[in-house]
């Protein structure tokens, strides 16, 4: 294919990706060094309140936002360097907490709290998703042909359900008067509040994510199992391999590329954990990095969005993604060079 034809085919897609992915990235990077604020002017204001003998008047100097002729707030954008990053990371407080081994103090800073949760969440769900997916694939592969269809149908439900709704549906089972909380209370004989402390919420979040993603791993591993070479399995039997050894030395190595694929996709997605925080409404206890950016972008009570801080936290989130992707990219590059 000539370059010109190739360019014509990919141009619309490239244009979309450039305009809506690459350009925003650059603009977020730049925004994180600037701060847009209303111009405030010191104004003397005299307020008078009626008193017993006469009016009591007070003159105060207030900093009021300046309005232009249309009544709009005039804003100015100033270069603030790393100020927004400092606001997000709070290095002084963080360092003070670290040097005095004050874990709780460190966790009081939103960014570190979010980072801690995002990392533990990503690393804990990874083995669970792969393990459950593999177990399901093996079990379905064992099952009679007639029940495979319905099992796959049911398994796909948690996968395609809207993430916020999925989290909500689990939340409703465990809220104060949800059915499973009632059951646990009846069983243990004490009051249980699943949404009053961080660790139970995190447990439910882990459960939700495994419930949501395991079907994806299962379907991929199940497809991979169909291509396992029966000859090598039989050879292993003849060599006296037990069932577990066959799994360990024949089936798992065969599935290895798929396991790596699922692990990568899962790492990317789990690092972006966000919907759980919304669905479980856990912002008071547990927050994630992406939720932190989202929260800065949401208008606060005065209707202002802290774009600059959001950009800083977005760039910090990006660093994690880059660290995650570097080994993958290096491997792909080596493969590509090897192929030529």
């Amino acid at each position: 294919m000539k370059f010109k034809t190739f360019a014509a085919f990919v141009a619309p897609s490239m244009f979309m990706m450039f305009l809506f992915i690459a350009a925003p990235l650059v603009s977020v990077f730049l925004q994180s060094f600037y701060l847009t604020q209303p111009v405030r002017v010191a104004t003397e204001i005299e307020t008078c309140t009626p008193g017993f003998t006469g009016q009591v008047c007070k003159t105060e100097t207030k900093f009021l936002p300046q309005l232009d002729e249309n009544g709009k707030v005039i804003t100015e954008t100033t270069f603030v360097g790393l100020e927004s990053y400092r606001n997000v990371v709070q290095p002084d407080h963080a360092w003070a907490a670290i040097s005095s081994f004050d874990w709780r103090g460190l966790m009081n800073i939103d960014f570190w709290k979010a980072l801690r949760f995002t990392l533990t969440f990503t690393l804990l769900t990874l083995p669970l998703v792969i393990g459950v997916g593999l177990a399901l694939a093996l079990a379905v592969n064992n099952a009679a042909r007639s029940i495979r269809g319905p099992v796959i149908f049911i398994s796909l439900l948690p996968f395609i359900i809207t993430p916020v709704i999925g989290a909500l549906s689990i939340r409703w089972l465990f809220v104060g008067d949800g059915i499973l909380t009632r059951l646990m209370e009846a069983y243990s004989g004490q009051d249980i509040a699943m949404f009053a402390q961080a660790w139970t919420i995190e447990l439910l979040m882990l459960f939700y994510r495994v419930w949501h993603v395991a079907p994806f791993a299962f379907v991929i591993f199940y497809a991979g199992l169909q291509t396992v070479n029966t000859d090598s399995l039989e050879a292993a039997v003849i060599d006296g391999a037990t069932r577990f050894e066959r799994l360990r030395y024949v089936i798992v190595p065969h599935l290895m590329p798929l396991i790596v694929f699922v692990a990568l996709i899962h790492l990317m997605d789990a690092y972006r954990v966000f919907e759980e925080v919304v669905g479980f409404r856990s912002q008071a206890h547990v927050i994630s990095l992406q939720w932190l950016t989202y929260d800065f972008l949401e208008p606060d009570d005065a209707g202002n969005r802290s774009i600059s801080r959001a950009s800083a936290s977005a760039m910090l989130t990006m660093i994690g993604i880059v660290i995650l992707l570097v080994p993958l990219l290096r491997k792909t590059w080596r493969d590509h060079k090897g192929a030529h």
């Binding site: 990706m17 809506f20 992915i21 977020v28 925004q31």
Partner: peptide
Amino acid sequence: IVALVFRALPHSVLVAGYLP
């Protein structure tokens, strides 16, 4: 490859770019 990197981006990063 670039598309793969773009796929990994958290969406909130992009929205921070669009909003203003």
